[in-house]
Design a binder for these strands. Sequence first.
DNA 1: CCAAAAGTGTTCCGTCTACACCCATGG
DNA 2: CCATGGGTGTAGACGGAACACTTTTGG
Lengths: 225, 225
Amino acid sequence: MTVFYGEHTKVLVSVDCIVFGFDHNKLKLLIGRRQMDPGRGEWSLYGGFVREDESLVEAANRVLLKLTGLDNLYMKQVGAFGAIDRDPGERVITVAYCALINVADYDEQLREQHGVQWVSVDELPKLYSDHNEMVRKAITLLRRRVGNEPLSFNLLPELFTLTQLQHVYEAILGEQIDKRNFRKRVKAIDFIEKTEYIDKQTSKRGAVLYRFNREAFANESSFRL
Amino acid sequence: MTVFYGEHTKVLVSVDCIVFGFDHNKLKLLIGRRQMDPGRGEWSLYGGFVREDESLVEAANRVLLKLTGLDNLYMKQVGAFGAIDRDPGERVITVAYCALINVADYDEQLREQHGVQWVSVDELPKLYSDHNEMVRKAITLLRRRVGNEPLSFNLLPELFTLTQLQHVYEAILGEQIDKRNFRKRVKAIDFIEKTEYIDKQTSKRGAVLYRFNREAFANESSFRL
DNA sequence: CCAAAAGTGTTCCGTCTACACCCATGG
DNA sequence: CCATGGGTGTAGACGGAACACTTTTGG
């Protein structure tokens, strides 16, 4: 193939995954101890380098699949980070992606195998390089979007109670929500469907389980909660 | 320097500038005919390759300065674009930046020298590669932000009339706004200051010129229009 | 004197917010 | 029988949307 742009500098490009989960009523992030130099042992996001034969999104999905064993996850680009010395080893430009997963879907063995763990977003340690900045930006985006897009369901199992759903919102937004107002809004959204099932895990009385109907949403395609 | 990540592929990284302006009550975009292969002659955004000794933001500013002769412009990252074959020449990952400038500040000679022109965003031709997609995303971001951030002033001269300001909003949002409601909202924002000057360009009666007070905004730092 | 743009308030309606009590059940 | 979490309605405040006429002045 003809080399058109031969005179310009090439750089390493990586993707970093900001993986959010929801557990014990907290918004959590998947981080681990970095296993290579430079920065070995520091807390870090999980990432990988972009290969010649894959797009950025493909790279992010590959890394995410390797990490979680899960495919078809909700994923969104957070942005590119390109300070010259952001990586102490060599010049690396990175593109951060944010993913939402249901913690229960994540195989514990695989998690330990990668040496990563769930850490509450409001107890995050100092992370490697500019990773804290990426996380901040991801959370900002998440907060802005959670009311306009049906994101929250990615953090929950297929069936969930309204209390669980409310806790997700509270964890993302970082503030308490009035129960009656919340449920009133949910009731107005007809692709959040009541099912015939009852959850007895968390209460003696039992709570009705709901489901997010993706097909019904695809038709309406507007969302406001 | 030690090479830590030697085994991985490096790629070309470029920045592309999505430069918005406001003229004749329309939101405009700066585009030109591409002057190099591949794609020579196609309509295209203005861009450049990222150098070894500059960050992404610095690269975008350098390219923007070269194009417009203007410094310290409002600029925001739109995102990274990394499809494998997005550039027909060679693998190039690009990071798009969106900038807002006051058309009157742009030297006509410099504009012609770079062979670029202002084209209304609702009459955009097919652009090179994935540039249309970048523009779409930039416009979406712009619309979302214009009500929450004082962006619009970057598209106007230092002094402007309320009618001009309203036209900027209408051009960005792509819809008409009620004059009385708009002015009511402006009046509630105290860092949009009335000046003693009158503009007689567009009306016989004359319209009061306003100014955006950046210092006053920095103190308040909340915005809603 | 008239065309053309600037400027100005009020009413209505829907939405958001605050708020407290009864229900069902397992232990 | 009681502790625990599930479930429900209303009133008042607030903000956004609709809407039409007067003013000024250059040509």
